[in-house]
Design a protein around this nucleic acid. Sequence first.
DNA 1: TTGCGTGTGTACGGTAACGAACATACCCTG
DNA 2: CAGGGTATGTTCGTTACCGTACACACGCAA
Lengths: 247, 247
Amino acid sequence: MPHRHPPASFDVNRMLATLPEDVHERLRPRLEAVPLALGQVIYEAHQSLSHVYFPTTAIVSLLYTMENGRSAEMGVVGCDGVVGIAVFMGGETAPNRAVVTSAGDAWRLDLEHFREEFRRVGELHRRLLLYTQALLTQMSQTAVCNRLHSVEQQLCRWLLLSHDRLDCDDLTMTQELIADMLGVRREGVSTAAHRLSHAGLIRYKRGHITIIDRAGLESRACECYRVVKTECDRLLGQSPGRGVPQA
Amino acid sequence: MPHRHPPASFDVNRMLATLPEDVHERLRPRLEAVPLALGQVIYEAHQSLSHVYFPTTAIVSLLYTMENGRSAEMGVVGCDGVVGIAVFMGGETAPNRAVVTSAGDAWRLDLEHFREEFRRVGELHRRLLLYTQALLTQMSQTAVCNRLHSVEQQLCRWLLLSHDRLDCDDLTMTQELIADMLGVRREGVSTAAHRLSHAGLIRYKRGHITIIDRAGLESRACECYRVVKTECDRLLGQSPGRGVPQA
DNA sequence: TTGCGTGTGTACGGTAACGAACATACCCTG
DNA sequence: CAGGGTATGTTCGTTACCGTACACACGCAA
């Protein structure tokens, strides 16, 4: 089941939400609603894109796969952003991959019309640069987190980042996949998940993780989650619903 | 001795090099040559900038300091780029710090004139976005490297990234400072440096490291260095002089 | 020269994560 | 409802790095 609902409205994606009327009218007929399936590859490393994607209910991971096959996630994109930064930053391609880690929907826009709108240097241009800075923060904080924090802390961070981009408390996700995202062994995720479950923060069974106690996860996570969340909200506006209260 | 030479020409910095004549003429009278001293802080976390900096011979590290005092580097800026991304990306500030790790010179430009030129959406705008993508690559690869590679591999990567941005083979840098950059203990750097020295790749004494065998360092480094280097050259044009040959 | 500050070498036990192997348990399919 | 594929639990020895402690060594300055 790639998607259960009719495509969400534009307003579910922060880049498209409440755009000025003229931009909205130009883009509306060009935007195409597409379901994104779990595991679907949006782009491979060094591969040109044909469209730019604005997820609504889907979640996409940006990850790097090494020559020896091991991988690690560098960022997550959901309804807060856009997949295909390289298109408007000028590089066309990037050395990483983009893979759907939570099935759902997205709007997509072909390059020609996207570039046409971007070159107007209006509200969309402004938002995309702000989002890129937010993504930069997420990536750099991931670098710090990978260096200095434990698997359990990172699992908490990862669960929270995913939860922020979902409309429910249930993640369809195996521990094996999470391990690939975090760049650690499955066993490490397994034992960390066990501890979180024992503490009553999550519940899981065969490919499903349910968030029980968000606040508890936040308190077990390292400061990295909070830094990223706060910065994203500052740059892109308050997120609707979830997340830590602003300091 | 903050700088031994008269300020380098514009062309030493990739963002300013060979700009179209009209841009060059507008910027020339606004650019101010400044020496940057070792340890000097260009900006603190969440602090607004008064100028944007274009290093010529100086090297600046972008690093995050945690609440408990430990730190890790997320990126390096030298003659290839600009310090103060947040100014044109729209966020104004960032949660990281920028510290001079190798004394030298830079050009700087006050925000008013910088923004005036950026808003023209000309060649400088184009280059800055390309540079931001290059920095993004560097940060994301740092994240991967922090997760998957050994201290020795990361030391090699770090030395090479620094060497690329220097005009000599001698780094004025203590192992203690390198440890702060890599987010590891000084002892870890010490033993790794010892091995590299034993292998004849570097030589060091009290705050100075000399690169003896660049090719040897490249072969000991993880693929991360090569990925970042290749991508930066692709995005910003071939670097003058050093680095791995293009595939 | 004689310090003394600072940078580096080395050792120790402790810990977190790794790699591999295997046991169990769930759930879909036939 | 039986079977097989897949997800998870558990164990083992190994390794890399951490934290602490302390010894040494270089080089500037009095």
